[in-house]
Amino acid sequence: MKINFNNRDPVYLQVVQHFKEQIAKGMLEPGQEIPSRRELAGNLRINPNTAQRAYKEMEEQKLIYTEGNSPSKITKDESVLAAVKKELVTDAVGTFVASMRSINLSLEEVMDLVKTHYDEAGEGKS
């Protein structure tokens, strides 16, 4: 696991964001165990307190759950998982649209571009 942190956003939120991306991409599966906060701090080279705070935030957002003394796991709650995906997509589209608007492209132009690129990327994959 490696994150390139920026220095201006709270590190714990960047960690949470990273987990959301991993979940949305399917790199972390529902019910999968995640590293302890100490392991996470070590892997990411961040302060253990920050790792702790990130996990607390994820628990509050119901992204992870802990049963008794066993390690924390990624949630199996479909609605949460769907919400995570939706949030990421909404964010990505929001950023994309904002940058398109800033260079004054019309919706049609954007849609054409998107279509071409989407198809190309699909062909490249197969």
Binding site: N6, N7, R8, D9, P10, V11, T50
Partner: peptide, 13 residues
């Protein structure tokens, strides 16, 4: 972390 959260500033800032 507080300064990052409330002011969006890094230590260097």
């Amino acid at each position: 972390e507080e300064i990052r959260e409330t002011e969006g500033k890094s230590v260097v800032d």
